[in-house]
Write a protein that binds this DNA or RNA. Structure first.
Lengths: 214, 214
DNA sequence: TAGATTGTTAATCGATTAACAATC
DNA sequence: TAGATTGTTAATCGATTAACAATC
């Protein structure tokens, strides 16, 4: 995926700009924006350059224009529909999570294999897994979130792809194989935490060694 | 952070090796392992080389030895204690999540500002936020997970650092500023999903254009 | 105008991959 | 021994940063 990092940063810029806007700012320089998300000003201008965003030499960027431009690039001016598969801890939490809505992402339904967890009358209906394929097809769903155990994740992905899903966010801690016409992005929570542990241990070790060398 | 990607891959190797072991394998080649997590064999050998892991020319790697070695590097042979701050959707889900335990990570407590959510007798106690500093200090907690709203995330981080936390996994969608003796790793769920949406849209566009060019 | 900031090009840096000698 | 696989070095690739001319 070319420019993956740039795209991720575009989302971050947008978040920062929203905050800056509510703080009363109307325009901004690459310098400020860089500081807000923790990158160099060069990086900001480079990112904008890649996506054809331009500002005013000397005058910086108009925040409103910039947000509008970023929304167009990121396709956030239209509502995006998604489904979640798996009503366990993670799946249920994501279904209730209110962060998606303000970015125009709508969770249409949750699918679950355990009949006891099915509740089709909930705000976000929890339907039986058997109904997934039909739901995806009739509602033209393109985006799926996998929050099932490792052992069934690949099977769920295969069914999603078969039904027409084009992009998947996967929380199962396993590598999934997808045809190239479907994007899969993995979030592995244990791995992220292990990473924190590893690097914090490393820092502590370094600090101790530095002390010895005084 | 030097070799961040290598460290992340080490965790992935370990997961894959555990699976391979239960499947009955005793030894493995860089080739197989590469395939299991989706990288090149060169990458596998390079990663191992960086951390001083060696195998047998011709005979590959003993899975048991390899797992042991990875556990030592990743510090997974000792139990790691952590706390979660915020008992909302994400925080509560993480507290119940069983994926941490098998990697030796123990969530000791959850802290929450809303008194109605406090329940100190739960399996993983939910304590009032006011008790966080004392808890961290008396239990020598080094790792924290932030699952509070954007608006209070920085404040929580500051208190954690003050109390002695050295590594933080942050779910609030905002850049947090930490002194260099504390590692912060960010997980932004909305951003991950937006990324999937962006790249799946891109793929669909490309597919359509390819069709036109036939 | 003088000063400041953009947009872009070139330089640097780091990470991945290819290649192959060493050797089991 | 012949064949296969590691471990490491060199080549490649991509991403970040620095620098500076253009210009508001």
């Amino acid at each position: 995926m070319k420019n993956k990092n740039s795209v991720i940063r575009l989302s971050r810029y947008k978040n920062a700009l929203r905050r800056l806007k509510t703080m009363g700012f109307a325009r901004i320089f690459s310098d400020n924006l860089a500081d807000a998300i923790g990158v160099t000003p060069s990086q900001v201008r480079k990112d904008f350059s890649i996506f054809g965003i331009s500002g005013n030499k000397r005058g910086g960027y108009q925040i409103d224009e910039l947000i509008e431009h970023l929304n167009n690039i990121l396709g956030k001016n239209t509502i995006k529909h998604a489904i979640i598969v798996g009503a366990g801890n993670i799946g249920a939490a994501l279904a209730k999570y209110d962060g998606f809505e303000k970015d125009g992402i709508k969770i249409d339904a949750v699918f679950e294999a355990d009949p006891l967890k099915v509740s089709s009358q909930a705000v976000i209906p929890v339907l039986h897994a058997d109904q997934m394929i039909e739901f995806i097809q009739t509602n033209d769903i393109r985006i799926g979130i996998i929050a099932v155990p490792e052992s069934s994740a690949q099977q769920v992905l295969d069914l999603m792809v078969l039904s027409g899903v084009k992009g998947v966010l996967n929380f199962a801690p396993i590598r999934l194989r997808a045809p190239k016409e479907c994007v899969v992005n993995n979030v592995n929570l244990v791995l992220e935490l292990e990473n924190v542990i590893y690097f914090s241990n490393l820092l502590e070790k370094e600090a101790q060694e530095a002390e010895i060398n005084i």
